[in-house]
Design a protein around this nucleic acid. Structure first.
Length: 219
DNA sequence: CACCAGGCAAGTA
DNA sequence: TACTTGCATGGT
């Protein structure tokens, strides 16, 4: 529809190439929306491998459960998630999120899902420990809202291609993707997952696709 | 041994 | 507004 704007086709081109090269990533790696949300908090500035250990510990104690999380002592919870690092901090943050879910939605994630995306984002940002990336990860990967997640991999990806510098604001980077792609949960989900996969595979250095038109397109 | 990992909040200038 | 620092375990 917008053949006048080359960036729209360029970004889709990159997405198609990544998808074709690596296939679907099936993100987020979790068994339920609640587990996604928990992972979003636990993975803050932390290697995913450590998060897996903490999640496994939680599963053993049946703690991937809103009621169980509400009643558990925060100190006890912190010991369960110890492998993630920053564990006292993150136990508090998990508690804050759980309180929020009960206060606003009676602990009903289906009810939460019905709320307007922009309102929901603002509410999430009001929760202690939920910043832009965590809020958007919850919206996209737990609630399937069409919003693009910007993380460290996304930034490196853009920096490596000379599209942004390291000081670029979160919202600007997010707008770059969202204004140049269709508003589509599947694309946002898969694209971000592919960027992460690519970053991990190539030690966050190698340009993704030589000869891709993106190489010549600066913002 | 040093450095990093799928951030965020609070403090300072 | 733009930096800086604390939070902390586990892997390379």
């Amino acid at each position: 529809m917008n053949k006048e704007d080359p960036k729209k086709e360029l970004l889709l081109c990159v997405f198609e190439r990544l998808l074709k090269a690596y296939g679907k990533r099936n993100w987020w790696p979790a068994e339920s929306p609640l587990e996604v949300m928990i992972g979003c908090i636990l993975t803050q500035n932390t290697a995913w491998k450590n998060v897996e250990k903490a999640i496994a510990n939680m599963k053993k104690k049946n703690l991937i459960d809103l009621h169980a999380l509400r009643s558990i002592d925060v100190g006890e919870l912190s010991e369960v998630i110890r492998p993630v690092g920053f564990y006292t901090l993150k136990a508090k943050r998990l508690k804050a999120l759980v309180d929020f879910l009960f206060d606003e939605f009676k602990g009903d994630l289906e009810l939460m899902k019905r709320m307007d995306q922009h309102t929901l984002r603002k509410r999430l940002l009001g929760v202690d420990g939920v910043g832009p990336e965590t809020a958007d990860s919850i919206l996209l990967y737990a609630l399937e809202k069409p919003i693009f997640v910007v993380d460290a991999y996304t930034r490196r990806f853009l920096i490596n291609h000379g599209l942004f510098d390291g000081r670029a604001k979160y919202e600007r980077i997010q707008a770059f993707f969202m204004s140049n792609l269709p508003e589509d949960t599947y694309i946002y989900n898969e694209f971000h997952a592919l960027i992460v996969y690519l970053g991990q595979k190539h030690c966050r250095k190698v340009p993704i696709c030589k000869g891709c038109p993106l190489e010549s397109g600066k913002t």
